[in-house]
Design a protein around this nucleic acid. Structure first.
Lengths: 195, 195, 195, 195
DNA sequence: AACTAACCGAGACGGTACGTCGGGTCTTACC
DNA sequence: GGTAAGACCCGACGTACCGTCTCGGTTAGTT
């Protein structure tokens, strides 16, 4: 007896989730975040609007959970040097934001998240916190190797690193220059040096 | 005779511009960018909607030109050191984005700009280009003083510097920590060091 | 062995019928016919929606069979005079339509019935035909007593009599004046006089 | 200078009213009252939904004011006899309710009106009151001619007369038998006889 | 005692319509 | 030609019901 009260009523159809995710990705890439309406997603997915609203509170949540699913769970790289590790971390960010759907969604998504306190809290705990944890782990390894001291300002590094990627790709909409990650990482490594 | 036919008909009323600007700032601070409608601005300003559309193409342009008017024209600081100059530059960014109306407007504005190619081009030439020019000037002065070599990657520095500020204030909505500018500037100075 | 294959499977639960009938009457009186949804009836009765749809085809049928159960089967009055008999017939109509649930249901119910040919046929055979039969019987008795000739237009009398009651109570929503039945009956008796 | 404050803003477009009226009549005849949605009317009329909601509060008001415009203003018939006058009055009712759009609209319309107290009051004052006035005038003329006494119960006559027509045409959906009006009028004339 | 079939409560499903709101344009009378 | 007012068409919003379906589970009669 694992679940006490069992699950009552008809269970949600997993095929709906898949169809919705596909429709979201397609519409984002085709017409962008602002022009993507919930109604259009429903029609494209062959699904009723309720089926979407039953799962997500609105467009922001729908797009965030549908598009940004990868990377968060990918395991920490261990390249042997701080610069290598940071490059890998930044590179995964770059790749995530370079996918067509993600690139199309980012600015509008950030605007919607910023406008609603609950969503702003959600992004903090679901995106920022894990990212910072990973960064801290990378810096800890570097400290153990003797590459840096232990008093590294991870917050500032995260702001700078994530901010640079967001600004370059998400806001300015630049192409993802292949050595962008390496250049940003190199700057941070030097920048955070603790004597 | 420069303009042959001059301007015919009734000239535009300057009081309307002022009333509109006030209404935009007030509504942005009260309810945010997304919830601010052109109609509401018009009503609040005691002005017809057409009077707004006659001057601006839409909400993004209206807000951008109404809220972000300062700083772009402020003259270059000259503190004697690269770090001092950069701190001043970052500080002016921080201050600009910390004003209630600006903070409320930023994310939504960026989303609207990103969605429309013409607007994206506008931000590039009207905000990014001058900012980069000023940054280049700062680096040139540092090179003349012998503080750095001349091959400094200004683009990357701008991305990092602006990105960190945008991300911290605009996206995450954090409070403007008084020594934020100094910390960012310090990191950049070390980070862009050219041997 | 009455029915060869009998009825297999679990029999319907009579308590559900009762709970549904109560819920219908309560919701009709509280919020009216239009505002009464099948889902609300199901919830109020503590019953699944299917349990309702298994028994009735929709709201119109549900309400009709749940609310209008009396009177149709009541036996013919025999007061000794045509006017007395007609008064009794009209009075039973008045009483049936004066119950809160019935009064609340009538107009909407008639609209739904009128909109669907099958339902219109149903009302004709299940309400109108028996009513006319009873009226014909009353007139026959009067003819046998010598009160009237035999060529009385029962159709017209029924339209007039039922129409007057429907219009006064059902459509205009007037209070059921206690001598309404008698006044209508008196007018009909004089009106249908056959020399 | 008739209107003091003039009329400000763009005036309503009379062509919209006409297009909406046509669309309502067509859709009523095609699909009936219940199946006629405001959105469908708007599309058919080439008009925005707002343009409808700006003029009417909802479907009931829209249909009532659009479909039932005639007859109310037609002048009193004067045939010389009470029965003739009444036949004419009933006949105009029959004709009004026999038009396809009116016949299709009646039951649903009555249901909606009955459900909302404000609308019920409206029908009382806008339909019933004028109808009763005309009936009273007819009876007065008859009294002056010496055909009847003056104490005729006009209320009851109206209920009976209107009820019979409503019931026969509106509710039962019968065809408009050509001498229906005459038969109803004849019955009333005899029925309301005052000795 | 096992099987089978219909019932049951719950609630998800694809749809359709609702009434409102904002966008950007157009049309008045007036200045 | 600018201006305030406000009507215009359009399209999206989030909600409410519709009538159907799909779960796990119950309750009878039939083998």
């Amino acid at each position: 007896m694992i679940s006490s009260s069992a699950r009552r009523g008809r269970p949600r159809d997993a095929r709906s989730d898949a169809a919705i995710a596909d429709a979201v990705a397609a519409l984002l890439a085709e017409s962008g975040y602002a022009a993507m309406s919930i109604g259009a997603v429903a029609t494209r997915a062959g699904v009723g609007k309720d089926t979407i609203y039953r799962r997500w509170s609105g467009k922001a949540e729908l797009v965030y959970e549908t598009v940004f699913t990868t990377a968060d769970t990918a395991d920490l790289p261990d390249t042997g040097t701080l610069e290598g590790d940071l490059t890998a971390v930044v590179q995964s960010l770059v790749e995530e934001f370079s996918e067509p759907a993600a690139a199309a969604a980012l600015p509008g998504l950030l605007a919607d998240f910023a406008a609603v306190p609950e969503l702003r809290a959600a992004i903090r705990s679901r995106f920022l916190a894990p990212a910072k944890e990973r960064l801290v782990a990378v810096f800890d390894r570097a400290a153990r190797r003797g590459e840096t001291d232990s008093g590294v300002p991870a917050d500032l590094a995260l702001d700078t690193l994530a901010g640079a990627v967001f600004f370059h790709l998400g806001i300015m909409g630049e192409q993802p220059d292949p050595d962008l990650a390496a250049r940003i990482a190199a700057m941070i490594v030097k920048g955070i040096e603790v004597r």
